[in-house]
Amino acid sequence: MRAHIAVLPGDGIGPEVSAAAVAVLREVATQAGHVVEFSEHHIGGIAMDETGEPLPQATIDACLASDAVLLGAVGGPKWSDPQATVRPEQGLLALRAKLGVYANLRPLRVHPRLAAHSPLKPENLAGIDLLFVRELTGGAYFGRKQREDDAAIDECRYTVGEVERVVRRACGLARRRRRRLTSVDKANVLETSRLWRATTTRVAGEYSDIALEHQLVDSMAMLLLTRPSAYDVIVTENLFGDILTDEAAALAGSLGVSPSASLGDGPRGLYEPIHGSAPDIAGQGVANPIGAILSAALLLRHSLGLDAEADALEAAVDAVFEHDELTRDLGGKASTQQVTAAVLSRLAGKCRVAA
């Protein structure tokens, strides 16, 4: 297998954690006999400094020519003026649109060793195995925006087609898991949510083996804290998904361990840890690389079709959780490089050689 991966380290701790992800991907390729090439490109604040744009055309071209895109993080205090017309985050939103990645997958499991770092009681953490599917290119983040003297407008707009495609993706994923789908909306108030609910009900009806339930977003925020193990696949719109997935990530003990995959209709995807650029610890070598490393596992599975290699990498991370020193956000003292080295050590010899 040959593949080219565009790497966008970005800002803050992005370069540190993306380097860890590249290191494990190189090791997987070496062990399994694959040829994987990497090229680095700018996005976010560093791209603004270099080119004046948060997403230069050269980066767009490289990403569109790649088999997958691996991203670190964007943003930081240097570019945080809320009145600025150009911001680092615009680069990420534009990249998602350019790549056509409309379904953001965020898996969540809680390793027993990390349970002590969760805000929930240990008994409420048993059996958590969630997969969020967040619609990524519609809603309030992409709607019309207008600022007036004493008012502001953020338009939330969805089409039937936008809802259909992400719900079909969620149903397909639920079919490979426990066949339960929860759709989250605010249909008692919002017209976009009433469209969402009606469309979801119709599409899910085509999957007779999938059990569908609807939850209002405020109720879902509570249920994630009181009975998270009751849920399997959760599909929702852009803004709700952004908030709920960060809430759910806290259950795992740290934002630093949570990966994500953003997918469209083809195999190419955008992979990134869900944490931000963490400028307060950037350059100190203490950032948790696990979220980026697990994002690399999702890249192997969804864009390159290497399920066995993805399983081996995830098992290596589980072994590190079980036996090795962790970064300080998880109560340990290990550096970014030490945790990366531990994953590489646990991965040694675990990937099959390609035929």
Rank of each mutant, 00 (worst) to 15 (best):
V74N: 01
A84P: 03
S229Y: 11
G139K: 13
I153C: 08
V35N: 11
Q31H: 01
P259D: 11
L313F: 12
V36Q: 07
R168D: 10
E325W: 01
D265H: 13
V133G: 13
V184Y: 01
L92E: 07
G205L: 07
D154T: 11
P119R: 00
G205T: 11
C63K: 03
W79E: 03
P82F: 09
R346C: 05
P112V: 12
P279C: 12
S295G: 14
V317R: 00
E89V: 00
L120Q: 05
E322V: 04
A126I: 10
A204D: 04
I293H: 02
K186H: 11
S39V: 06
D329R: 03
V101G: 06
A249H: 08
L55V: 07
E162A: 15
T137H: 02
H302T: 04
A342N: 03
D318Q: 10
D150F: 15
V35S: 12
H4W: 06
T327P: 01
G205F: 06
I293G: 03
V133Y: 02
E314T: 13
V166Q: 06
A152V: 14
P228G: 13
D280K: 13
G331L: 04
V160C: 12
A334S: 00
R268E: 13
A21M: 05
A297Q: 04
T85Q: 14
S303Y: 07
I274K: 04
L108H: 10
A334Q: 03
R87W: 02
